[in-house]
Simulated assay, not measured.
Amino acid sequence: MSYKTLLVHIDDSRRSDTRIALSLELAQRWDAHLIGLYVVCQDLFRPIFRQDKTLSFAQIEAQEANRREKAENAFLAAAERAGRSAEWRAPPGPALDVAMLHARHADLLVLGQQDPNDPASFVAPHFVGDLVLGAGRPALVVPYAGEVRTLGENVLLAWDGSREAARAAADALPLLQRARHVGIEIVHAHGQAQSPDAPEGIDVAAWLETHGVRAAFSTTPHHVGIGAGATLLNRASDLHADLLVTGAYGHARARERVFGGVTRTMLESMTVPVLMAH
């Protein structure tokens, strides 16, 4: 099993080059085709457009075209240096709708956590979360801070027996099969007891082994006042994991999506790349 088509989200943020470099390295692993999807904020009232209030709409459009051309040249040049098959896409239309449509024709998405200190990283409210929950494709979300030295060598798989966790585990198989170490982590709610007859994690570990993945499993108590998401991030740090795999939780309500606590924590506070699937 492998990913044959990867899609990396490209914008004008400082972290865009990191995502491109990582996606090219992943494309090399699986001899995959890489799509660079350029989608940026279209709200003229956002700070990135208000740096010079004297600019006319025509001048703003000219600046946008210049940034788009610069991003395209940088992406295609990086792909050529890496010797990878790649294509550039910068389709018109509402940012989330466009991204959702193109994401559904890829095996894996490479996205970036929004950086509160970089206005260019803002595309739309809850852009990454909405894309993860709505695209039907696994997404590798890269933190806005820190260096990604390795990815997928030491993987921590969050497991709670849910549909979302099962989906994430299955979608992560190409990465898990190449990992040096895979750990399955179960976070228990406060006061919840584990059955001594059938330890949680043993079934998913057995399933993974049928796919050539040998995994250890452990249980971490969920302490009062510390959310499950924060507990998982702490465990990832303690174990020096370079990838966390977790289900993405949420549902639609009216015209917006409501994110589960773990998913919200990951999107806001991730310290390590997270592969999420819904």
Rank of each mutant, 00 (worst) to 15 (best):
G227K: 01
H278N: 10
E69T: 13
S56E: 07
H181L: 06
F122T: 04
A77T: 13
T150C: 10
Y249A: 02
R255P: 04
L208E: 03
P116I: 07
G227D: 08
H240N: 10
V274I: 03
E185A: 13
P116K: 05
S23N: 08
P174R: 05
D43H: 01
Q177T: 09
H222R: 11
L243F: 13
A216D: 14
G83L: 07
G201F: 02
V141L: 05
A95S: 14
A74S: 14
A179E: 06
R15T: 15
D97T: 12
V110L: 12
N117Q: 04
G183I: 00
A58R: 12
F49M: 14
S13G: 13
R68Y: 12
L24A: 01
G250K: 06
Q113V: 06
A135K: 01
D130C: 12
G261V: 00
A135M: 02
P273R: 01
D130P: 10
M1N: 09
L37S: 04
E25N: 13
E164I: 10
E185K: 00
N66P: 01
H211T: 11
D12Y: 15
L76C: 03
L24W: 01
G261I: 00
L176P: 07
S237H: 07
Q28M: 09
A165G: 02
L244D: 07
A228K: 12
A165K: 05
A99G: 05
A215G: 02
A65K: 13
T54K: 12
A58P: 06
A86C: 10
L26R: 07
P143D: 04
G225K: 08
L7R: 15
A206H: 13
A139S: 08
L275Y: 03
R104A: 12
P91N: 11
V155S: 05
V110C: 08
A74I: 08
E209Q: 15
E61A: 15
E69P: 08
A82W: 00
L133Q: 05
K53A: 14
L22Y: 04
D130K: 15
R46Q: 14
V132S: 04
L267Q: 01
D31V: 07
A193C: 04
P119R: 01
L244Q: 07
R104V: 05
A189I: 00
L109Y: 01
L156K: 04
L109G: 03
A198R: 06
T263V: 01
E209L: 14
E72W: 03
E268M: 06
A106K: 02
N234T: 10
D17E: 15
S85L: 08
E185C: 11
R14A: 15
D242P: 02
A158E: 06
D118F: 10
